[in-house]
Computed example of a mutant assay.
Amino acid sequence: MAVVDLRSDTVTRPTEAMRAAMLAAPLGDDVFGDDPTVQALQERIAGLLGFEAALFVPSGTQSNLCAILAHCGRGDEYIVGQMQHAYRWEAGGAAVLGSVQPQPIAHAADGTLPLAEIEAAIKPDDAHFARTRLLALENTLGGQLLPFDYVQAATKLAADKGLARHLDGARLFNAATAQGADAYAEARRIAQCFDSVSVCFSKGLGAPVGSALCGSREFIARAHRVRKMAGGGMRQAGLLAAAALHALDHHVARLADDHALARRLAEGLSGIAGVHAQAPHSNIVFATLSGAARERGAGLLPWLAERGILATGLYQLRFVTHLDVDAAGVDRAVAAVRDYFAQA
């Protein structure tokens, strides 16, 4: 039985065309700075998003770490949302490795950080306080698109207060696809609200490994030093950069298919008694259980796994669509959930 893996869009396998691009990639040693494919990727993503330079790194976690430590010094702080990846899911790296204090803020229902709360969190210039240096946002956040008007307002507030602005854009192209018809243009429009942007290639774009951090040349030079300290220097990294380049060329337009499948999944789940699926903005579907369904919910994920349907449920049920999932797989998942709750 074929597995329908809805745990994350990180589980994708390289397509045959992507594998061919990886095999054909010219290589060098990126630690020496002479891998031509890495150089091509860095130039491509920086130019695409409107920045001077970019840095290829192994993961989004390392990209955010490099960004925060390049913007902030020991004793500084960054403002961040309670549920953002850089704060909640990255092992406290900025605090542990850089002595940079996070100042987390609770999200509004739409995933935004209230502007008044951001402003109130900015510390005065006083020796009693950590120095507030940076506002970090994430888009998409849990699959939710941050409204562009909000992004503009929040980043303007930060700039007016003298703060740098970083975007964890792990799924930036999903956000751009949800925001408008031209995903490349929309990604650039979002990115230009920030001083630095991290983009992940190994999620919806379907590459096996890698992220890029974009910013000014001076900023990327500082981030490069952090990457070295964090062990992120890779040698013949062009093998991986070639996959990312292929993804930028061939996998951006198809993100709309993932979004359509997520809507199909959410609609199907919402037709099951006791299952309430949030209408997705992009490719991530969250669902909650109520009544009798909630009472039986603990056995759902193991039951699905036995039938080749994989999902996660740390806080809520989470299903993620991607290039290795098709309409038949989505329908099979919905049918399996329905069958589980239809049991006597």
Rank of each mutant, 00 (worst) to 15 (best):
D34S: 14
D34F: 13
D34M: 14
D35H: 08
D35L: 12
D35Y: 08
D35K: 10
T37W: 05
T37E: 04
V38I: 13
V38M: 10
Q39T: 15
Q39A: 14
A40K: 07
L41T: 08
L41F: 07
L41M: 08
L41W: 05
L41I: 09
Q42Y: 05
Q42I: 05
Q42S: 05
Q42H: 04
E43S: 10
E43K: 09
I45E: 14
A46Y: 05
A46M: 04
L49Y: 07
L49Q: 15
L49W: 12
G50W: 11
G50S: 14
G50L: 13
F51H: 15
F51V: 15
F51A: 14
E52Y: 12
A54G: 15
A54N: 15
A54P: 15
A54H: 14
L55A: 13
L55C: 10
L55R: 15
F56N: 07
F56E: 09
V57Q: 14
V57N: 12
P58W: 14
P58D: 12
G60C: 15
G60V: 11
T61F: 13
S63D: 12
S63L: 13
L65V: 08
L65N: 09
C66F: 06
A67G: 09
A67H: 06
I68E: 03
I68R: 02
I68K: 01
I68P: 01
I68L: 02
I68W: 00
L69F: 05
L69V: 06
L69E: 07
A70T: 03
A70Y: 01
A70D: 04
C72M: 01
G73Y: 06
R74M: 04
G75C: 05
G75V: 03
G75F: 01
D76G: 02
D76L: 02
E77Q: 01
Y78D: 00
Y78I: 00
I79E: 00
I79L: 02
I79N: 00
V80W: 02
V80K: 02
V80D: 01
G81K: 01
G81C: 03
G81L: 01
Q82H: 02
Q82Y: 03
M83Y: 00
Q84L: 01
H85K: 06
H85L: 06
H85P: 04
A86K: 07
A86G: 11
A86M: 11
A86N: 10
A86W: 07
A86F: 05
Y87E: 06
Y87P: 04
R88H: 02
R88K: 04
R88W: 01
W89R: 03
A91I: 12
G92L: 09
G93A: 13
A94I: 04
A94M: 09
A94K: 06
A94N: 10
V96C: 07
V96Y: 11
V96A: 11
V96M: 08
L97Y: 14
L97V: 12
L97E: 10
G98I: 09
G98P: 09
G98D: 08
S99I: 06
V100H: 00
Q101S: 06
Q101N: 08
Q101P: 03
Q101C: 04
Q101R: 07
Q103Y: 03
Q103C: 06
Q103D: 03
Q103K: 08
Q103T: 03
Q103R: 09
